[in-house]
Computed example of a mutant assay.
Amino acid sequence: MPTELEELVGFLAHPNPQIRLVAIENLVQFSTVQPSIFKKDQLLPIKHLKFLIRDQPKIAEHALTILINLTGEQDVLENVATDDRFLGIALGLLSDPKEQNANLIAMLLANLSKYDGLKTLSTRKQAPPESAARLGSDDLVLNQLMDLFVKGADGSYNPHADFDYLAYVCADLSQHASVRKYMVTPQAYDDVVPLSKILVFTEHKSDVRRKGVASAIKNVAFEVDSHADLLDEGKINVLPYVLLPIMGGEEYDEEEMADMLPDLQLLPPDKTRDPEAGIVQTHVETLTLLTTTREGRELMRRVKVYPVIRETHARVEDEGVQEACERLVQVLMRDEAEDGEMKRIEELDDDDRIEEV
């Protein structure tokens, strides 16, 4: 005999929308405390939930919330992330400027991005809906996601969404080499490097945006062949965007200040560094990665990165931040004549690329 909960799950496919709504409203709470009830009959309830994201807005909202909770389970994650038809529907809804549940879709996509197979988004193409014409992207899904993240900030594209959680999508996908290559390659439709579009969000009111963007920059910094472009002021120019968030209103002596990057000079006394220690640590680790080449190390010495790290170490009472600062200082203070060209950064390995979001 099926239990009452199992009967309730069965009503997800009921033809009457009022019954579906009552059922799904009562099931949301069980998606965290009793996920097994959604795994019956070879995940048939998951199939129903995926269908319901196109239902009336309230039903779709609950369906998405349940899917977000359940994709923490590996079997559900794989089922949803490998459903090509569902991905196409979700991506189409996400780029619809009138979609009321766009933020929840972005959150679900952030979960799905943890599945390695989703790196295929780097080549996936899909025409955005006609209602999204002002997005201005081409048919490459990653370009659509990037433009949604940039143009949709603070509800400027869709009044129902800010698309903050696409920062986590960017962070997780950038662990893959194909996506990192995409991030540093000018796109044909606008001749802009995707990474350069998101750098401004290293200083943003949203913790989610700052954290995701910081992790994405760090992951891209593993591409040593791209370091020259990353550091070039006339190209991607990541350095000021990585340094500004870790700087407060500290005073530096005139000699140090004179050699700093122009964007870092004469900051107001009320300038605050990022309040999240984890984000500060990520930026410091990015700087360490960017010292992999001799050119990178010499640039950082020339623009006085050391004083910034010195102040960060002194003022951020966090063990992870202080250890990251010490590792960077060891590299910057090292004698080049003694050590020669360093081909690798020993202190950071691939497992350090991104902390779980």
Rank of each mutant, 00 (worst) to 15 (best):
V169D: 02
F149P: 09
M1F: 07
N26G: 02
H48P: 05
A277K: 09
P275Q: 02
F11S: 13
K119W: 00
K40A: 13
T282I: 11
E317S: 11
I354L: 15
Q144T: 01
H283D: 03
K304M: 14
Q330A: 12
A81L: 09
V141C: 06
V321C: 07
A161L: 02
K47A: 13
E256Q: 11
T202R: 01
N101H: 06
E311W: 14
R344G: 11
R85C: 10
M146Q: 13
M257D: 13
L112E: 08
I19R: 09
R273H: 05
V308F: 15
L67V: 06
P159Y: 01
L299I: 11
P129C: 12
K211V: 05
V238M: 02
K125Y: 05
P45A: 04
T312S: 03
R344F: 15
L173T: 00
L118I: 05
A63H: 12
H14K: 10
I24C: 01
R301Q: 11
A337M: 08
I66F: 05
V242P: 00
D339M: 15
P2L: 13
S113Q: 14
E326G: 13
L64S: 10
K58A: 10
V238A: 02
T82W: 12
E130W: 14
T202S: 02
L267P: 00
Y115L: 10
S113W: 14
R180E: 14
T71L: 05
A110D: 11
Y189P: 05
K218L: 07
L299E: 08
D116R: 14
A60S: 12
A258D: 15
E99Y: 08
T282N: 10
Y241N: 09
G278D: 05
G320L: 03
K205D: 13
M1W: 06
L112C: 09
T32M: 03
F38G: 07
S31Q: 01
H313I: 03
A277T: 07
T312M: 04
